[in-house]
Computed example of a mutant assay.
Amino acid sequence: MTESDERYTHGHHESVLRAHSWRTVENSAAYLIPELRAGATILDVGSGPGTITIDLAQRVAPGVVTGLDYSADAVARAQENARQKGVENVKFVVGDAYNLPFEDDSFDIVHTHQTLQHVGRPVDVLREMRRVVKPGGVVAAREVDWAGIIFYPELDALSRWQSLYDAVHRSNGGEPNAGRRLKAWAYEAGFTDVSGHASVWGMSSDEDRGWWGETWSQRVLSSSFASDVQELKLATVDDLEQLSKAWIDWRDDRTAWLAMPHGEILARP
């Protein structure tokens, strides 16, 4: 991304980057695994803290993987993550998803995860991804569908959180229910061979509930979500504190469960 009228809904608060650092190829890009091969070149658009990118690099070594993000802070964190893991066949650059700084036909695979939902012109981003993928290559995208989230217990406060999230996301120029639209967007972007898939993040174990509930209890108070809600006058600080407590209550309930559906595509020019 970058467009002056678009804003990344989550921002780059520490709680957000910590949540995103949970992501791996296994839990966030398993549909892409059959396409991976040693020596492949990959571009990861919207790479964030780089955990998926680094995982991809380890799987296709000695192929070089490039992560691109518009946030210099996210790129710096990704570079440090790669250094700590000793992964050398990966690099990270600051760049614009609408104007990728690469020649045509540069990569075997162009991948993005949870990026298209945050841009105002996702079809244009997909066209750019199509431009830089090699003939015979594949563009892969996975996006959540926020309206499809199911949680238990059915807490009123979490229903309120879901409504607020939708309003904030749309106010920032994105489409929170991108998952269901991926296949249509890909055909509009000019792809001729598009396969659609679906997968679900499930949060039920003590560990998963712990990190998800804890990070969201902080995000509703301290991340860009919190400031946007107040700027839009959708909720007060007291309201947000109630949402934070609801996420803690959900986290601590051993019967709690959450499912987040995702759309996935593999698209070929």
Rank of each mutant, 00 (worst) to 15 (best):
V133M: 03
V133W: 03
L155D: 14
W146F: 13
I150Y: 08
Y152I: 02
I150C: 02
V125M: 10
V125K: 11
A141E: 01
S159C: 06
P153L: 12
V144S: 10
A141W: 09
D124K: 06
A157D: 10
A141M: 09
L155Y: 12
M129T: 03
P122G: 01
V123E: 13
P153H: 14
P122L: 01
V144R: 10
V132G: 00
R127K: 13
L126P: 01
M129H: 02
V144H: 10
G148D: 07
V123R: 05
A147T: 13
R142W: 08
L158T: 04
Q162P: 00
L126R: 02
V123D: 00
A147M: 05
V139D: 06
R131P: 05
R160Y: 13
G148P: 04
R142H: 05
D124F: 01
D124S: 07
M129E: 07
E143F: 03
P153N: 09
L126Q: 03
D145W: 03
I149V: 15
P135V: 08
L155Q: 13
D124T: 09
A141V: 14
I150R: 08
W146H: 14
V132H: 00
R130D: 03
E128Q: 15
V139M: 08
K134E: 09
F151A: 11
E128K: 10
R127S: 09
V132R: 01
V132I: 11
W161S: 04
G137R: 06
L155M: 15
F151Y: 14
Y152M: 10
V123N: 12
K134R: 15
V144W: 11
A147Y: 11
V125F: 06
V123I: 14
A147S: 15
V132Q: 00
R127T: 03
P153S: 04
P135N: 11
F151D: 11
V133L: 08
W161D: 02
K134V: 12
D156A: 14
P122S: 03
A140C: 15
A157L: 11
G148Y: 11
V125C: 06
P135Q: 14
V144T: 11
R130G: 00
S159N: 14
R142D: 05
E128C: 12
D145H: 04
S159P: 00
Y152G: 04
L126K: 07
V138M: 07
V138C: 05
W161C: 01
G136S: 11
A147E: 15
S163F: 06
R127C: 06
E154D: 15
A147W: 02
S163M: 07
F151G: 01
R127E: 12
R130T: 08
I149D: 02
Y152Q: 12
V132D: 00
Q162K: 15
R160A: 04
V125Y: 08
V125W: 09
P153Q: 10
G137Q: 04
I149H: 01
K134A: 04
G136E: 07
L155I: 13
Y152S: 13
W161Y: 12
P122I: 04
L158H: 03
R127F: 06
P153R: 08
Y152R: 13
L158N: 05
R130K: 15
R130P: 02
